[in-house]
Design a binder for these strands. Structure first.
Length: 506
RNA sequence: CGGGGUGUAGCGCAGCUGGAAGCGCACCUGCUUUGGGAGCAGGGGGUCGCUGGUUCAAAUCCAGUCACCCCGACCA
């Protein structure tokens, strides 16, 4: 079939970004919508990416002293009620279980029966039930710090959903820790934020801005919420991870108390932090191009795919012999101390289509091997991060000695490109009219890609924040480590010291 | 909950002035092809959302009902 457009994905990013996103996921075989409203089916290619993310993060959590545990999916209604702000924040999006069996009516239809005394809420997050548990585990300062992580699914009944970015059910990890002092809990909060930041940058090649959330954007029940914010290619911000200092709010709500060295009862200090399958959406929108997904080598399910090219069974045998040897030698080299993940695609599909499938799946390196290569003792290599997808013929031995470096180079270039994009679309703005113009599309009916991150001064008042929201722009965070400045608020003109990130967001 | 729209093959759709259920993609078989997305030939696949009504005859007309989508509201 002749493609009507030159790119593998249609529409292109500049034509219709949200639609492009959906198409990349479909063509990249990451996930699909399920029959269950708002829920997604994560397909093997997408799930392996999640497993890779999970494995790496899990190591980092353990390196920082955390242990995994598992808590119930069902939360008794009365637990939810314990922290006032928390209830308010989640009440509107809870799935509630009210019955515990099914019976058949006269027509043979199944109907719920056996009403529960107390309804159960499917966890939208686990602060409450973990808090209840921790109150039993923590008796003495000797029990602290308590550093727990859970890998789980959670449910938030969202009105509008988008694959990976916002679904009713999603996968995540939630860390929950208890500390004897405020300072230690605050340090933990920032430490895990840093773990997220370096993971996003080193593994996902996704540059992020770490900072503190404004009062209105905080996690319900938290004292302070911190986030990492990434810029997508439509220049909108994606909150990619959060870390919360919960103060003593949940300790008081769940009665987490301990005896200190002086023998006095004291409420503990807690934190929680999480990242989710949303990160995959972030990878798609940070690196994807008009030919589909582009995966950072460090989380790619397959780092190099080998495509055999032959005409008949005689050639087939020769090509496969050559390929097997090369594959074996590739496996003897390492990438970040791990065996390079290769796949020989021997499916009986025509070569061109096969290649494009891998391009759309974002595999970092594609190797084509045919009779020419055997004759020349070479390989044909395509780099996925090369916009033109040029085929380069290089000597076999040269390729083998360079493969690890090639993957590293792809990883680094992907980060640099994304970093440059973020930088190019971040502006210091100190005039309201410039701010307004920055965030207003030229075509009102069909907005083009516009805006970005505005670093502007803010007085700290909720009212200004609310007024700016009229533009669909919110404070993403207040970057950490910023030098104090004196100036005036972008909106009201009153004295301001905080330079914050304003952006449209997912 | 308001405003608009759509339900026909796995997906995307046509058919809608009533008269034998179709097209494209995907799938299967064969032959020819194979380093930028193959060609030809053949083939499989349907409770036309559901219920009722009008009619000799309903995917088509009418009524009801259910589901989903888009724009608001809500949420980030």
């Amino acid at each position: 079939m002749v493609m009507s457009s030159k790119t593998a994905i249609s529409p292109r990013r500049d034509q219709d970004y949200p639609n492009w996103y959906q198409e990349v996921i479909k063509n990249g075989d990451l996930a699909e919508n399920s029959e269950v409203r708002g829920c997604m089916i994560i397909k093997p290619w997408g799930y392996t990416i999640w497993e890779n993310i999970k494995n790496e993060l899990d190591c980092k959590f353990k390196e920082t002293g955390h242990q995994n545990a598992y808590f119930p999916l069902f939360i008794p209604l009365k637990y939810m009620q314990k922290e006032a702000e928390h209830v308010q924040g989640f009440a509107k999006e809870c799935a509630v279980v009210t019955h515990h069996r099914l019976v058949q009516d006269e027509q043979g239809k199944l109907i719920p029966d056996g009403k529960l005394e107390e309804p159960l809420v499917i966890r939208p997050t686990s602060e409450t039930i973990i808090g209840e548990t921790f109150s039993k585990w923590v008796k003495s300062y000797r029990d602290l710090p308590l550093l727990i992580n859970q890998w789980a699914n959670i449910v938030r009944w969202e009105m509008r959903t988008r694959l990976f970015l916002r679904t009713s059910e999603f996968l995540w990890q939630e860390g929950h820790t208890v500390h004897s002092t405020q300072a230690e809990a605050q340090q933990e909060t920032l430490q895990m934020l840093q773990v997220y930041k370096s993971f996003a940058e080193d593994y996902l090649a996704m540059p992020v801005i770490a900072g503190k959330k404004s009062e209105s954007e905080k996690f319900p029940g938290a004292v302070d919420t911190y986030s990492i914010e990434a810029m997508m290619q439509d220049r909108k911000a994606l909150q990619s991870g959060t870390s919360h200092f919960l103060g003593q709010n949940f300790a008081k709500a769940s009665n987490i108390k301990f005896l200190n060295r002086e023998g006095a009862h004291q409420y503990a200090w807690t934190t929680s932090w999480g990242v989710s399958t949303r990160l995959i959406g972030g990878v798609v929108m940070t690196h994807g191009d008009d030919n589909g997904l582009v995966l950072p080598p460090r989380i790619a399910p397959v780092q190099l795919v080998i495509l055999p090219i032959f005409k008949d069974s005689e050639e087939r045998k020769k090509v496969f012999d050559y390929i097997e040897k090369i594959n074996h030698e590739i496996k003897n080299t390492k990438f970040f101390n791990q065996e390079i993940l290769t796949e020989i695609d021997d499916r009986e599909i025509r070569g061109g289509e096969k290649k494009w499938q891998w391009i759309k799946k974002g595999v970092p390196l594609i190797l084509e091997i045919g009779m020419k290569d055997i004759a020349n003792n070479s390989v044909a290599l395509i780099r996925r991060d090369d916009q033109d997808l040029k085929r380069v013929f290089i000597p076999r031995d040269k390729f083998l000695s360079e493969i690890s470096g090639l993957l590293e180079d792809i990883q680094n270039k992907m980060y640099k490109r994304a970093f440059q994009y973020q930088k190019n679309n971040t502006r210091i703005i100190d005039q309201w009219n410039e701010f307004e113009k920055f965030f207003t599309p030229v075509q009102a009916d069909k907005p083009e890609i516009h805006g970005g991150f505005a670093r502007s001064l803010w007085c700290g008042e909720l009212q200004c924040e609310e007024e700016i929201k009229q533009l669909n722009v919110t404070i993403r965070n207040i970057p950490l480590g910023a030098k104090p400045e004196s100036g005036v608020c972008i909106k009201c003109g009153k004295p301001a010291k905080l330079r914050v990130i304003f952006a449209k967001a997912y």
